[in-house]
Amino acid sequence: MRWIWIDSFVDFVAGERASAIKNVTLAEDHLHDHFPGYPIMPAALMIEGMAQTAGILVGEARGFAENVILAKIRTAEFEDYAVPGDQLRYDAVVESLDERAAVTAGTVHLNGEPIGRIDLIFSHVNKAAKVPDLPEHNFVFTDQFTSLLAAFRGPGRKRSGT
């Protein structure tokens, strides 16, 4: 399984805001365990989806000069849940951004309706000072994610937001 919990960007304004969508599908193994006979998208993975959306937004704002680490979940509130066939949209807005860290405010939409709030803090870690034992996947931003951004910005097929 690939650790990418967003399918594509539908909006991206550098240093300001980003929106990404995630289509929930029964092809995802974890849904068969969460829960057997009653598949629902785990809230923790919605937080991860928001962290990926907001993390790329934050990383891009500083030219991907530093590694961006999810340091704190300030708020995570959900009023509904997603099931296979649903589409989630993660809207992230940069609230603060400096050389130490970034704060983002996020809203989760389910098929276009707001169902939750996820506010995050990211730490900027100098790539040279990278902790040796920290695995690459601990960083929000990896090459896999640049391709998502490239797909949004590139000359290929563009989608409108939902």
Partner: peptide, 21 residues
């Protein structure tokens, strides 16, 4: 540790002040 940064960001917003590192 990260809470100290969180507090700084929140205080800056709440009181409209700048808190240098």
């Amino acid at each position: 540790s990260i809470d100290f940064l969180d507090m700084v960001f929140r205080l800056e917003k709440e009181f409209s002040i700048e808190i240098p590192k």
